[in-house]
Nucleic acid binder design. Structure first.
Lengths: 267, 267
DNA sequence: AAGTGGTCTAGACCACCAT
DNA sequence: TGGTGGTCTAGACCACTTA
């Protein structure tokens, strides 16, 4: 297990001290693990050292380590596979589909159960530009007005019907080296692309929705009639430590689709 | 502690066996605790016997019991208060406000932080009727078409501006004894009212939203102009065991407010 | 068969709350 | 002071994966 021992050596800097007084021991352990991930000592997809090893290195009991790992698994930062090991979570197509893409074909029967129709949308890039952040985007992304950003417009279709128009703003500093060619040639989900190509993991987002009338651009891009009501969703997506990394505005044509959400216990 | 011992005796029927083979031991324990609550042996607000006592009665270790309780606390079925005890959760005004009422005044700055403006809406009852369930409502609530239901329309205002029109359908069988007078005279949040008066606890909900143009009724009730776009939200609220208990359609006027949601790890 | 995570135990000690 | 939940320990044993 050469890779593992290398990882442990590299991880030593994160794992040999629990000095940060973050309250209870398991929270300090959790913070130490997060530090290993945020500092890219452990990369998405990597296997962690075994629980026994980490616990030993940190000088805590295995139960305490497990409590910390439990929380990170729940937050989808880590993934456990019985018999194999614990891994830094990778964004899968399914995770994107079920967690972040929340548009579903209209159901006649509400309580019917699992949506049959959760298909992956077809994505077309409408425009890709390098611009300067306006006030709203800078505010959301914690940049200064005028900082360089990429502005990407995508059109998403389900069953060949244009349903969503996305307007995405990301920091050009954070996504250093991104260009239209790389973006167009990506072979995966956009959040997977962020993660594998730029090391940016989207963990959760906050959304605000309102009803609007189709703008001229929406009429053209979505092919809807003037006066059509649409849902406009503003999303701020966050990475570790609540760091905002993507500012997105989506226009959703809800003639045959719904914007779906769950209302359950807050985290 | 007379009340406690009575509760334990009553609870014996739930707590003396773990026969239901629900997989691992702590899951069986969790199910046993849920049974005590669902069968109303323990009522909302009641204090549970101490962890030591329950663990002893069930013949499991305290760690195993705690794991079961941990999950129920996370699902907001139980509440722990250090030094005092563990209690069956009661719906508070705050829980309604923060978890289930998801309309907030528009913020100019998105990432600004905690919404300053989360005020409790003023609620007016527009109509209260006993009707027969139509197909959609029956479907959602797992009733038969034509079963008796209560249909309640409420108008919600924030800062004296009408913002939401709620259309609520609940089973008259489940809410036996409800009438307009009792509904109007309730002194609390609607979900708190369901819980304290009818023993029905709303745990979570699933919502589907779409943009619509204001109907004649919305124009009249919300005082908006014809052609105004609104968000229509259909909510199915569930109690224990995924039992649907309330079917609600809300029209939201989003001129100065947003429909807000979090996108985080699924449960 | 060896290594991993998954479950469960039987304690110890601490922090908080009531009286 | 006595009871409650909160944290932590150091194991044992099981189930799953890989070789």
């Amino acid at each position: 297990m050469d890779m593992l021992s290398v990882m442990q050596d590299a991880g030593t800097k994160c794992l040999d001290r629990l000095s940060q007084d973050g309250g209870s021991l398991y929270l300090q352990v959790k913070r130490a693990l997060l530090t290993c991930i945020e500092s890219r000592v452990w990369l998405p997809g990597d296997q962690l050292p075994s629980e026994t090893l980490i616990a030993g290195q940190l000088g805590v009991s295995i139960g305490t380590l497990r409590r910390a790992v439990d929380e990170l698994v729940q937050e989808q930062v880590l993934v456990r596979r019985q018999g194999k090991g614990t891994f830094v979570a990778l964004h899968s197509r399914d995770r994107y589909l079920f967690q972040f893409f929340r548009v579903e074909a209209r159901e006649e029967r509400f309580g019917a159960g699992i949506p049959s129709d959760s298909e992956y949308p077809e994505v077309e890039c409408v425009s890709f530009e390098r611009q300067r952040a306006d006030e709203a985007a800078a505010d959301a992304l914690r940049l200064r007005t005028g900082d360089p950003v990429f502005v990407i417009q995508n059109r998403l279709s389900l069953k060949r019907r244009a349903v969503v128009l996305d307007h995405i703003v990301i920091s050009a500093t954070l996504f250093k080296g991104l260009n239209e060619k790389r973006f167009l040639e990506r072979s995966s989900t956009i959040y997977n692309f962020y993660q594998t190509e730029f090391g940016i993991t989207v963990l959760h987002a906050r959304e605000r929705a309102r009803a609007v009338l189709a703008s001229r651009e929406a009429i053209r891009r979505l092919g809807v009639a003037p006066g059509t009501p649409l849902i406009e969703v503003q999303r701020l997506a966050h990475s570790f430590g609540e760091r905002p990394v993507e500012w997105r505005t989506s226009l959703i044509y809800t003639q045959q689709h719904d914007y779906v959400s769950d209302v359950s216990a807050p985290r």
